[in-house]
């Protein structure tokens, strides 16, 4: 049975990526995986890098590799605000591998518990998760 559709908007600093009706949004916050259907309670969440899936219908799924960001649900409207949203087939294996290597070098170079190291760890997490999306 078809689910009730609701409005979703995916916005990045480089412009809107998606805007339209979907049946479900599946993504990941810093707390854990989350699925959003129509009439979800108002929500403000902080997103972690993950695969963002928009279920337009049971057979039609649009997915993106999302960077860090936020999700806001209010009045049956979901706003996904991410710093980047890349189509999985636009991910480049070599680039991601280079990013992982660069982040790991930065981790090794930086002093523990400094902000520089925290930044490198975040970069590493993002690149590894994107790599995982590419592999899947």
């Amino acid at each position: 049975m078809a689910r009730t559709p609701f409005q979703v908007e995916v916005l990045t600093p480089e412009g809107p990526i998606f805007s339209g009706e979907v049946e479900m949004v599946s993504t990941r916050t810093e707390v854990g995986s989350i699925g959003i259907l129509a009439n979800h309670t108002p929500l403000l969440g902080m997103l972690a890098p993950a695969e963002l899936k928009l279920y337009i219908s049971e057979s039609e799924i649009v997915s993106f590799a999302q960077g860090e960001g936020y999700i806001q649900v209010a009045d049956n409207h979901a706003l996904v605000l991410v710093e980047e949203a890349i189509k999985p087939d636009e991910l480049v294996r070599e680039d991601l591998q280079a990013q992982i290597d660069a982040a790991e070098a930065a981790i090794a170079e930086s002093e523990p518990h400094t902000e520089a190291q925290k930044k490198a760890l975040r970069d590493q997490r993002r690149a590894k998760i994107f790599f995982g999306i590419l592999e899947a």
Binding site: T29, E30, V31, I34, T41, L43, L44, G45, M46, Y70
Partner: peptide
């Protein structure tokens, strides 16, 4: 009060 926060609002703010 009705809004769900994931994680706590203070934590979200620290990243915003």
């Amino acid at each position: 009060a009705l809004v769900e926060y994931e994680p706590e609002p203070a934590e979200i703010l620290q990243r915003l």
